[in-house]
Amino acid sequence: MARDTQENLPFAIRAFSPEQLKEALRKMHLIRLFEEGAEESYMRGLIHGTMHLSIGQEASAVASCMELTDADKITSTHRGHGHCIAKGADVGRMFAEFFGKETGYCHGRGGSMHIADVKTGNLGANGIVGGGLPIAVGAGLTAKRLGRDDVTLCFFGDGANNEGAFHEALNMASIWKLPVIFVCENNKYGMSTAAAYATAVPNISDRAAAYAMPGVTVDGNDFSAVAEALHIAIARARAGEGPSLVENLTYRWRGHSKSDRNRYRTKDEIEDWMSRDPIQRFRAELVAHGIIDEAGADAIETAAKDAVAAGIEFAKAGPAPAITDVTKFVHAEEAA
C-alpha cells in the first residue's frame, strides 16, 4: 500500500501491525466469552456473590491498553474483567479467582470485584466507585519520583466522575504533571442513574478544563478512535507533560449486576446498542482492510472459546483455600 494513501486509513490500521490487530481481536473475543462463561457459571451455581459484566464495552478495554507494557500500570473498577484481560491476565487464573480457589489471582480472597494481576501491571479492580482514582495518581507519582517512564492508566466509570475523589485525583495529577491517563468509560448509567441526569456538564471530558488537562470524548465502541485518543494521551504522559482525560462513550448490554431488573432503560435502547457490537465492528474493519479474512477471524473466536473452556476446567480443578487460612494475607508476616 502506497504511503500517500495511508493517511486515509483508520488510525489503528496505520499504527499497529497485523499481528497486534489480530491479538486485539482475540482479546475482545476472549473478554466477551470469558464474561459469558462467568455468567453461565454463576447461573449454574459455580460462582457465588455478584459480578458486573462489561459485555458491549470490549473495544474500550482493549484499545485503551494497546500501547501499554507490563511496566505500565492500570487501576480498574468493579466492571473490570475486560481491563484485566486487556492488560494480559490469564483467563484460567481469573476463573479460578471467581470460583474462590487458591489458584486464583487473589488466592480466592478477592473475587470478581478485586481481580488483579500485579505482574502485568494491573493494580486491581475496586469495589469502591472512584477508589482507584487517587491510587492511580500515587502510581504516577512513584514513576516520576523514581525516574521511570511507565505510565498509569486509570479506568473509571461515569458514576465515579461525581465522586470527590475524581476532583482531588485529577487536580493533583495535573499540578504535579504526573504520567496518568484518566479513562472514563461512560456507559450512560451509574447503576440505574443516568449520567445525563447526574452530571452537570454534557460531556465528562468537559471537566478536564477545570484541571488544565486535555479532555476528549470518543466513540468508545470504535476501536480505532479509542486507540488514537489513548495514543495521544500516553505520548503526552511519557513525555512528562502530564495527565489527560479520555471519555469512551459505550454501553453495557447486561444490567449493573446480577440484581438488575433493567427498569431504567428500554428494550429498544438496549437492542440499538447491541446492533452496534464493538467486536463485530472491529472484525469487519480488519476484514475490510485485508488484515484478516473471515476464516481467520472465525479461527480466532474458536481459539478464544477453547481458552475459556480450558480456563473453566482449570478453575474447577484448583484447590479451595484452607479454612484455617482465613487471616492469612492480612499482614505480611502471615503471607506464605
Partner: peptide
C-alpha cells in the same frame, strides 16, 4: 520539595496518592 511534598487540602486524594505510591514502590 520532591521529597517533602506539600499536598493540596485534599485528604481523601492525598491519602489515596500515598496508598498508590506505597503500592508501587515508594514509602510515603
Amino acid at each position: 520539595k520532591d521529597r517533602v511534598m506539600d499536598t493540596p487540602i485534599s485528604e481523601l486524594g492525598g491519602a489515596g496518592v500515598a496508598v498508590g505510591a506505597a503500592l508501587t514502590g515508594l514509602k510515603p
